[in-house]
Nucleic acid binder design. Structure first.
Lengths: 235, 235
DNA sequence: CTTGATGGATCGTTGAACAATCCATACCGT
DNA sequence: ACGGTATGGATTGTTCAACGATCCATCAAG
């Protein structure tokens, strides 16, 4: 046994134990449903029957309902009394608000770049490279998730785990909006180079320039998505 | 029957039915627990036994667990696997983050005052008067809630219900931190006049001035709370 | 003082049960 | 044909009882 680092290996254990003694069944069920919904494998508007899903995942109705409560609170699912839970379908109003929110929060986060640690910017750089790599190999789903990581990195500049968790949910809801529109994922390809530009602004701690890039990015992205909503004006 | 306003009474019904045919039992349970906890009637750190609370509210354990999941997701309760749920106890770290968050979000919201409707500012004015009235009559708990309404009004300037809901939870969590410190509620009294100052800045759409007032307010409030944490350095 | 064993209390999860609600269908009178 | 209404099946809302798993305080032993 290496008794070398009296404090080192203990904290290492603490870090490792995270993924180990994971959560309750309800939380694990919520986890798998969350990715299925966020990845668009379950179409928006789909009703999730307690019996069907419960049987599919091998859990009881009660446990499943706890998981549903979680996801409904995250706004990925919509809970209608006595009718069941549905995968949320976004509307044009939602898109407008989601982007207003992103402008406000991500804009404010970018402004904090001056007081952000280098590590945070490194993380953003990594997500940019991740996206460039994926784009070069035309792995577009990966481009989309890299874009997600990029914006999570931006939010992280604010240094608030709570805000991070909140914006994760906002970004997830936005993904839902894309899926509602049958999102051709190479949609996100053009933004790879933009992210690189924003990154260089951040690396030089030029908050002003970064904010401009971000504003343009969000404006274009919103326009693009809203145009899709005009073409397919679902209820 | 007044058939007078052909559209009015219909929408009036819609509004009225809201508080009427309310949500599921789990949601109603969550509602009552939420106010009990947020008002500090259940001390931070208290364990909420499923059996005890279930009996007290006359609901089954399963339904109660759904409610717990809701409140845990709102961070009012902490869910520890196989140990139960507890009223959250705030730590100094939390306080620091909560204020960083408020500076970021409320600051950004204040900057939006230019594009905010008059109605939004009226609402803020009302909360200020509400606080002044309560302070004059030394109803300090009401002063505290008026202060809460004030800041909710500020957040509302951003025009995003999602952000509003999020910040409501943040403010609730902060209240928890105050309660953790045995909050003498007249704590909030000095801020009544500050809110008035901030309001006049908003009324003249002077975002710059308003942001300064807000920044000072939050700085002082944070210092005050953190000082309390030094005196009572609980685990 | 640490280690290990014991037992009780509480949580986690399940399955069954029943009432309440919704929804599609069929029925009815005009 | 059409609007309103009954009917019945399917699904949700909620409760209850049960059992294994886990935690925790206690106590005994080293």
């Amino acid at each position: 046994m290496t008794t070398s680092t009296p404090l080192g290996w203990v904290t290492a254990l603490e870090r490792a134990k995270g993924p180990l003694g994971r959560g309750s069944t309800a939380e694990r069920v919520a986890d798998v449903l969350r990715v299925q919904v966020a990845d668009g494998h379950i179409a928006p508007g789909t009703r999730l029957s307690e019996e069907t899903v419960g049987a599919a995942l091998g859990v009881s109705r009660n446990t499943l309902r706890e998981a549903f409560r979680l996801l409904a609170h995250e706004r990925l699912l919509v809970h209608e009394l006595n009718r069941g839970v549905f995968v949320r379908t976004a509307h044009a109003d939602d898109v407008a608000e989601l982007y207003r929110l992103r402008r406000l929060v991500e804009g404010a986060a970018v402004r904090e770049v001056a007081s952000a640690p280098d590590r945070a910017i490194d993380e953003i750089r990594r997500s940019v490279e991740e996206g460039e790599q994926a784009a070069a190999e035309q792995r577009w789903p990966d481009v989309a998730t890299a874009d997600l990581h990029f914006h999570r990195g931006i939010v992280r500049l604010a240094g608030s785990p709570r805000l991070e968790a909140f914006m994760d949910r906002i970004h997830a809801e936005l993904r839902l909006a894309f899926h509602t529109m049958g999102d051709p994922q190479r949609f996100h390809a053009p933004y790879v180079t933009r992210n690189r530009e924003l990154l260089t602004a951040l690396q030089t701690r030029d908050a002003r320039q970064a904010e401009i890039h971000l504003s343009v990015y969000l404006g274009d992205s919103e326009r693009q998505l809203l145009r899709a909503f005009e073409d397919v004006p679902r209820t």
